[in-house]
């Protein structure tokens, strides 16, 4: 066995131009992008609409060819079919063959990915259960809700047990409960040692699940690093207590001043709205239990 490479995806000086007119006018969607996605981490690719996230993903998947630069997946150039052997992909707002049942759909992709026939049925059942669609497995995909479509999409991406998962806006259009379930699944994938590349414009969700993030704007890399390093304020600290009276607060200020510290603010801690929503609606188990 070869040791898994430390870098799952490696982009070097990647540039992609699209022709937008017959006179040779070009639009640069990705501009000199250099990036490495470490293996075994959840990596968030962020940016506003039109920032080049989807183009980058399509280049990684061999669906587009880079104009210049190099893109490798586990060391294999992405234009080679071999580079996709170990990759699972969930497109944005996935649309699948509506006339197939969930089981048939996942089995179809499993066979495309070369899952041996002897293991196929068991593997299909396993991933469908894992994404929490066991009870709806024999329903036609055309009858699935948006959240269920995302989950069957995740199942087809996982059916051949790839080391790298690429999830394009996995929570777009999904309600908070569904989004939380998907976040849970992503954490669980990380726990299994998978590398996950995820794009999203829902920054709060990304922050919860990602180890590292990169921000793109107009095709260029603006910022890249560990989430904790980027959003944590190392020169500040928060103390949370039960409510203090005016007198107690004044005493505390004096106590801090005597030791060279300043009380910068007193505010009421707030629960995040999505957490409040989930606490009222009911948070699902780790493999997701809700199906419709």
């Amino acid at each position: 066995m070869n040791a898994a490479p430390a870098v799952a995806i490696e982009l070097r000086a990647l540039t992609k131009d699209f022709s937008i007119s017959l006179r040779g006018l070009k639009l640069r969607a990705v501009d000199d992008l250099t990036l490495a996605v470490p293996a075994g981490q959840v990596f968030g690719l962020l940016g506003p609409n039109g920032s080049g996230k989807s183009t980058t993903i399509k280049i990684i998947l061999g669906l587009l060819e880079a104009t210049t630069g190099d893109c490798r997946v586990f060391g294999v150039p992405s234009r080679q079919v071999e580079s996709r052997r170990n990759v699972g992909y969930l497109p944005e707002s996935p649309y699948f063959y509506r006339y197939l049942s969930g089981t048939e759909l996942v089995a179809f992709y499993g066979r495309v990915c070369g899952v041996p026939r002897a293991r196929l049925a068991a593997r299909v059942a396993e991933v469908i259960d894992w994404v929490g669609l066991g009870a709806a497995a024999h329903r036609r995909v055309g009858t699935y809700s948006k959240g269920m479509l995302q989950r069957i999409g995740l199942a087809q991406a996982l059916v051949h047990d790839p080391q790298l998962l690429i999830l394009d806006e996995p929570t777009a259009g999904v309600d908070p409960v569904g989004a939380a379930e998907i976040s849970e699944l992503i954490r669980s994938l990380k726990a299994q040692g998978k590398t996950v590349l995820i794009t999203s414009h829902l920054l709060a969700q990304i922050e919860d699940v990602c180890d590292r993030i990169a921000i793109l704007d107009k095709g260029r890399l603006i910022l890249e690093g560990a989430v904790g390093d980027l959003v944590g304020q190392r020169d500040r600290q928060a103390l949370i207590t039960d409510p203090l009276s005016e007198t107690e607060q004044a005493a505390l200020r004096e106590w801090l001043a005597a030791r060279g510290h300043t009380l910068l603010g007193v505010e009421q801690p707030r629960a995040r709205l999505d957490q409040l929503f989930l606490s009222k609606v009911g948070r699902p188990g780790p493999a997701g239990g809700r199906e419709a």
Partner: peptide
């Protein structure tokens, strides 16, 4: 148009 080709061609298929 339905982007099913996107999912399919992102697999190891010629």
């Amino acid at each position: 148009e339905n982007r099913t080709a996107l999912t399919l061609l992102a697999k190891p298929i010629w």
